[in-house]
Design a protein around this nucleic acid. Structure first.
Lengths: 223, 223
DNA sequence: AAATATTTTTAGGCTAGACTAAATTATTTT
DNA sequence: AAAATAATTTAGTCTAGCCTAAAAATATTT
């Protein structure tokens, strides 16, 4: 009864999951943009996913899409693969954190459950990937994430960097250079009302850096 | 001008290469059997590959198929991926030699050239995979193979095991158990005219083993 | 050499997953 | 609230890669 979850379906589910994390339901257009697929094609796939047995998404015309429990499990499986792979590539093959994303995007659909288990074991069952993003557990639940955007901090607040968005390799290289990486402590020295810029002191670095919201909205911290 | 080499085309080329190694040109039927695809579908694909620019195969109706230089390069690329992956899985993730084949079959189509290069480096540029099969070089040439089937040896001949066929996991487990693995020395104690059985002494093992041609034709040695 | 069997090819079809163009629905502005 | 704009869906196509059934070519047996 249960239909095959193809690579392309896995991609849809993964991106729906990520869009659902932020706002409520994912819009056809946002999904299309992320997947690099025409909106009309996305509509077609969403109809298919909603009508499959069991349904993988909840979809009402013109009202966006969310995952069902089944869809969420499938999404978390892919995300677990992805984040374990990123960790594995960094520790085993010497990739740097800005190079792993594309490779993991391809491998995540292909590795077996055995491969997944062996990686997890070899890495000591890590809970976060190299960007600090939480890795879903083996039983496919996503640990709670307490962190908030660096952009939400104000003058004199201190926090620990937890994770950074891995979308943009150039941003990742920049963050590495200025030392803004997971588990590092930072202090906000100044907040600018006008442009939202934050002046930051990074633990172990002598000079402060000024970061715009394009950066501070992509870095997440625990106070 | 040059068309995309899909996963499925890679599989065709890889199997054509392997069939070409033995007899001359590969037959539609043999290819179909290896690929688990209907013969009619194979014909269609061969026509496509022969008419692509550049052509990847030489194909004349009813006369089987061989690879062009371009086709051979593409095949060797896939085979290099496969064999490096098998080696990598064994040394890095503790797979045993009978478990790696399926996983490598999926990954071989997906890894980047960067991934290939990193594996090769991490493994010290190996020349053979865990089954002793030769790994094509980085510039895509296949090293010469001097080995001959164990089945061709006769009483009192001594040889070194070079490689074993990796098609059958059960056979691999059996060979490992009796110690018939690459680089081990063996001596033929007896040859039976009637059934082709060979009685073998394996270096470091006290008792002899008797092997039928189903086994000895899959093991390759250097005299 | 004819008859039979095997292999291969042709012809026509199907599905997944994409596309474009046009139609519809929702949202925003005036 | 009408008009304009934006987002979404429908309708109709396309391609890759497979399938089956039937026809044709080749190989083998008698």
């Amino acid at each position: 009864m249960s239909e095959v979850i193809t690579q392309s379906i896995q991609d849809y589910l993964k991106h729906i999951y990520e869009l659902n994390e932020h706002g409520g339901s994912a819009s056809t257009n946002d999904l299309a943009a992320r997947l690099n697929i025409a909106p009309a094609s996305v509509t077609g796939m969403l109809q298919k996913l909603a009508n499959s047995t069991p349904p993988l998404v909840l979809y009402k015309k013109h009202q966006g899409v969310t995952l069902t429990k089944n869809g969420e499990k499938a999404a978390l499986e892919v995300i677990r693969h992805h984040r374990l792979l990123e960790t594995f590539l960094v520790t085993t093959l010497g990739y740097s954190w800005d190079e792993v994303h594309g490779e993991a995007d391809k491998l995540e659909h292909v590795i077996s459950e055995d491969f997944e288990a062996r990686m997890a074991k070899a890495l000591g069952n890590p809970t976060r990937d190299p960007h600090g993003e939480l890795i879903p557990t083996a039983d496919l639940t996503m640990p709670a994430d307490e962190s908030c955007p660096l952009a939400s901090l104000r003058t004199d607040e201190t926090a620990t960097v937890r994770r950074v968005s891995d979308d943009d390799p150039a941003l990742l290289r920049h963050l590495r250079e200025i030392g803004v990486v997971p588990e590092v402590k930072i202090t906000v020295k100044n907040y600018s009302e006008f442009d939202g810029n934050l002046t930051i002191r990074v633990e172990g670095h002598k000079s402060n850096v000024v970061l715009g919201t394009a950066v501070t909205s992509q870095v997440f911290v625990d106070k």
